[in-house]
Amino acid sequence: MYIHQITVFLENMKGTLSKLTSLLADKGIDILAMSIADTSGFGLVRFIVREKDNDECLALLKANGYAARKNHVICVRVPNEPGGLNRVLCLLDEAGISIEYLYSFNYSEGNNALIIFRLSDREQGLKIFHDNGISVFTQEEINSIQ
């Protein structure tokens, strides 16, 4: 039920992001979702690629001097309408689960937006989503995005 995300450390300097995206583009790796968290000194770039690209992407990054890692996040379908995201957030809040960060896919599925969550308690979060009929987007579904 989890999907893979890759996180890369970037120094906060001009040109570092495009250098990273060029590296991926040259290898034909498609970035399906991306977010950047930045501070004055550095940034963390987090992104989602298809499963077939994950290991190659990680090896490529390390070989090119990037500090990178692969980890698990949760992706949910949120109806693309007013209050859609709010409902999901309220459920997490009621359950006492914190959101470390969230971002959305560049791609939307019909009338659904796809939101990626990093939660303080991943398993509990999944349970809440399941119990409340919130649909979770799987790695297989990501792999088949055209």
């Binding site: 996180t7 450390f9 501070t39 390390k62 890692r69 960060y101 990093r118």
Partner: peptide, 10 residues
């Protein structure tokens, strides 16, 4: 940093 970054959190 080591090439296996230890976290995805700022």
């Amino acid at each position: 940093l080591s090439d296996e970054i230890f976290t995805d959190k700022v």
